[in-house]
């Protein structure tokens, strides 16, 4: 594969590259930060990157939002609606897990007085 071909591919799939980069940033935050809230922020960034990836996979160049109404003819190109419907589910699940995790952290802070994972490991 030549260099110009490589750059062409990266340019066409730019959304995917951004999604992968966001995924790595989120994973780095998840691994390296000791604070539990920051860890969860990292997890949320990872989730967002996956949403971007899946919604991008349903894109069609020049496509409109899949809404039938005025100004829509038989030749209109629509983007793929299924990834959008799936991601709606994903967003709701992400919000629910975030709410539950934050409430657990509130209780943890009340009990232990810290949210630092390294310090929490030392507590018995």
């Amino acid at each position: 594969m030549s260099v110009s071909e490589l750059f062409y591919k990266l340019n066409v799939n730019f959304n995917y590259v951004v999604a992968m980069t966001l995924f790595i940033i989120g994973l780095y935050t998840l691994i390296s930060k000791p604070n539990l809230i920051k860890k969860f922020m990292g997890l949320n960034i990872m989730e967002t990157s996956i949403f971007l990836f899946i919604v991008s996979s349903g894109a069609i160049a020049g496509g409109k939002a899949p809404i039938f109404g005025e100004g829509v003819g038989p030749e209109t190109v629509f983007v793929n609606p299924i990834p959008q419907a799936l991601i709606l589910t994903g967003i709701v699940v992400a919000m629910s897990t975030t709410a539950l995790a934050l409430s657990l952290m509130i209780k943890l802070y009340e009990q232990c007085g810290t949210l630092n994972a390294d310090k929490l490991k030392e507590l018995k």
């Binding site: 594969m1 490589l6 591919k9 990266l10 066409v12 799939n13 730019f14 959304n15 995917y16 590259v17 992968m20 980069t21 995924f23 790595i24 991008s56 996979s57 349903g58 894109a59 069609i60 160049a61 190109v77 793929n80 990834p83």
Partner: peptide
């Protein structure tokens, strides 16, 4: 990251109506 970007390169081009997802 290198591994993931390599995967992106071999993925079908984004926005094409002939993609398997579409």
């Amino acid at each position: 990251w290198i591994l993931l970007v390599y995967t992106v390169i071999v993925l079908p081009p984004m926005g094409s109506p002939e993609n398997p997802t579409n």
